[in-house]
Computed example of a mutant assay.
Amino acid sequence: MMTSLFSIFEPSSGLMSLPLNWMSTFLGFLFVPYLFWACPSRWSLLWSKVNFTLHNEFMIILGPTQKMNTIIFVSLFSLIVFNNSLGLLPYVFTSSSHLAMTLALSLPLWLTFMVFGWVNHTQHMFAHLMPQGTPAVLMPFMVLIETISNVIRPATLAVRLAANMMAGHLLLTLLGSTGPSLGSFMIFILIFAQIMLLLLESAVAVIQSYVFAVLSTLFSSETN
Rank of each mutant, 00 (worst) to 15 (best):
R42A: 04
A162Y: 04
S184H: 13
M101H: 02
L5E: 13
T70K: 09
S12C: 06
I195T: 05
L105S: 00
F219M: 14
M101F: 13
P154C: 06
A100M: 07
V50G: 08
M114D: 06
T25P: 03
P135Y: 09
M125P: 02
L144R: 08
I189Q: 07
S184T: 15
V137K: 13
S7M: 06
V159W: 13
S75D: 00
L20K: 02
V119T: 05
N51G: 14
I60N: 13
M139Y: 01
G117D: 04
L198D: 06
N84D: 12
G133K: 07
I72T: 07
V151R: 04
S12L: 04
L175S: 05
F116N: 15
G87C: 00
S97R: 05
Q66W: 02
L200Q: 10
I61A: 01
P11L: 03
N150C: 05
N150I: 03
S17E: 13
Y91G: 09
L107H: 06
Q123S: 14
L45A: 14
L18A: 07
N83A: 00
M23C: 04
I152W: 09
V159C: 10
T102L: 09
A38P: 11
F82L: 14
G179Q: 15
I145R: 07
E10S: 15
E146W: 00
I207E: 01
V50W: 12
H128P: 08
I152M: 07
K49L: 11
E146K: 13
F141L: 15
H128C: 00
